[in-house]
Design a protein around this nucleic acid. Sequence first.
RNA 1: GGCGCCAUCGCCAAGUGGUAAGGCAGAGGUCUGCAAAACCUCCAUCCCCGGUUCGAAUCCGGGUGGCGCCUCCA
Length: 485
Amino acid sequence: MQIYNTLSGKKEEFIPLHDQKVGMYACGVTVYDLCHMGHARSLIVFDVIYRYLLYKGYEVTYVRNFTDVDDKIIKRAQEKKISWKELADTFIHEFYVDMDRLQLKRPTVEPRATDYIKQIIELVKKLEANGLAYEVDGDVFYRLKEFPSYGKLSGKKIDDLLSGARIEIDDRKESPLDFALWKKSKPGEPAWESPWGQGRPGWHIECSAMSQEILGETFDIHGGGKDLVFPHHENEIAQSEGATGKPFVRYWMHNGFVNINKEKMSKSLGNFFTIRDILQKYHPETLRLFILSSHYRSPIDFSWDTMDAAGTGLTRLYQAAERLQVAVESTAALPAESAQSSLPPLSKELEAVKTSFIKAMDDDFNSALAVGQLFEAAKFINRYLDIHPLQSLNHNDLEAAFLLFKELADILGILEADPTEFLKNLGGEEALPITKEEIQELIARRNQARKEKQWTTADEIRDRLAELGIILKDSPNGTQWQRKR
RNA sequence: GGCGCCAUCGCCAAGUGGUAAGGCAGAGGUCUGCAAAACCUCCAUCCCCGGUUCGAAUCCGGGUGGCGCCUCCA
């Protein structure tokens, strides 16, 4: 398996530090607001990476943190006149609501910064002892000039950073690039007792402290959005390696941005959609498919047209899944001799698809290629079921094929719903304007009319259902219905 | 100013030396009482110029256009 490592700038063979065990840390969110599409992408991308590593048989410890104390939280809490703690708790709750709807697997550990104050203080003390930190009036800063390899992740040189610096000069710092490890608390702000007085952690230090505590001094994968490369991850390296003298992370992974009209979606630009905005209009798996249809490192331009296309594509996959599932069920009761069917097995075709799928994912998690393979599988399924009459099908083969199809989709976290149920709820969560019983009733009446060749009556009923957003599909096995897209 | 990324069919998007995956949309056909879905067929030579090579979308050089980071940000 190959992984693109930001540190080296190229794909490298993935070899975990400890045999089959993988330690993985993904930067989570700062809980002061609802998550937007940019967060969704990062979360979904790392969810799939997690799923795939598990699929490959690795024993993965996946850590994703909550930053529950920082400037933005304090500010927002003051605006809302509630405590910072209350604000953080609220948005952690909201975060889970979104994540569950997006079908994200829960990480192994989800630490909160404020639960690791002790470890953070210990880490800062260690850096101080190593001459890499200094206190000024209750604040503690990192002494960058003592960490010469600074910039190796983002490809920046300290001198260039100094000359192009756009940061405000704080003349208490020895160098403009020195960053805060520990901040003195102002009255009313969250505060913990420390050797430097009442204070709170700087932003970068929590990830160093928590990752080290949970995953050890050196671990395999650390990821996040591209915007975290500098300064966040660069600073983490300085902190962790400065404290331990050991390599911090072996594979650095960063996902590209979500853009709107080619511009980065971000809080500061205000051009963002929250996950909820999107989920109001689309099924969560449509969002997953949209995101996974591009390579994780490329920028992805958000548009409603592309979302619509993803939705149509997802429906196509579900249509194939439903057909196959129905075929599996219909063949269960067939006489035993049909199990001796000499047809070329469908499952064999899907095995070939699986091989390509795995190859794609092995190549730096190329989910876009993998998605293509899923559509390839759908085509095989449909064609097979088109060509061969039901009586000639082999139940065990179909079942194996169905499981294979689901197995691959599961790596991407899609096709998790029952196909028939999914197709009935295509439009989303809005209530149907008619009960399911009434639909069945109308279908029965229409089929009676069809039997009697009362085409006008039959078509009237179908048109009436169409107006209510219900599409009918006639087949030898009966009439299925689903929502209009 | 420094560092870096990208440019593939109407739209989205794989492909990093061997002759352009897949999805959406579109055209024709099959199936169907008519439909829906599905299947079959068709639909690009890869921003421009130059170079390397038997051979380049893929490598090198130069343009043009777009974007990102250097400040909080997934």
